[in-house]
C-alpha cells in the first residue's frame, strides 16, 4: 500500500529547510504511520534531494507527523537552481512511499 491511500501531506519551506506534514485521514491509522514512516526512511527516500538531518515531530491529537528536512532545497529557495525551488512537490513524493 502507498501512503497516499491513508494519509495526506503538505510541504513548506524556510531557507534551505523543507518541512513535510503527514496527516492520516482516519485516526486509527496514526499508529501505523508512526511505526512505518521513520525519519530514517524519509531521509533514504529523498536521498537525492535531502543532504542534512531529518527530524520527526509527532502530533497524536491531530493524527499528524511533521518531518523537518535540513539541507533539502539546493542551498535555499532564494538561490536554488532547481525547477521547484520551494520543494512544494515533495509532499506528493512522500505519499508515494510504500508501507
Amino acid at each position: 500500500m502507498k501512503l497516499k491511500e491513508i494519509a495526506h501531506s503538505r510541504t513548506g519551506d524556510k531557507g534551505n529547510i523543507s518541512n513535510i506534514s503527514l496527516i492520516v485521514y482516519d485516526q486509527k491509522n496514526y499508529d501505523l504511520i508512526l511505526e512505518k514512516v521513520t525519519p530514517e526512511r524519509v531521509k533514504a527516500w529523498f536521498s537525492e534531494s535531502v543532504f542534512g538531518e531529518v527530524i520527526r515531530y509527532e502530533l497524536p491529537n491531530l493524527g499528524a507527523l511533521n518531518f523537518v528536512m535540513y539541507d533539502a532545497l539546493s542551498g535555499g529557495v532564494t538561490r536554488s537552481l532547481s525547477v521547484d525551488k520551494h520543494g512544494k512537490s515533495f509532499s506528493s513524493a512522500l505519499l508515494e512511499m510504500e508501507i
Binding site: 503538505r10 513548506g12 496527516i23 511533521n66
Partner: peptide, 8 residues
C-alpha cells in the same frame, strides 16, 4: 495542513 505549513 495549514497548521503544520512552514513550521518546524
Amino acid at each position: 495542513e495549514q497548521l503544520l505549513y512552514e513550521i518546524h
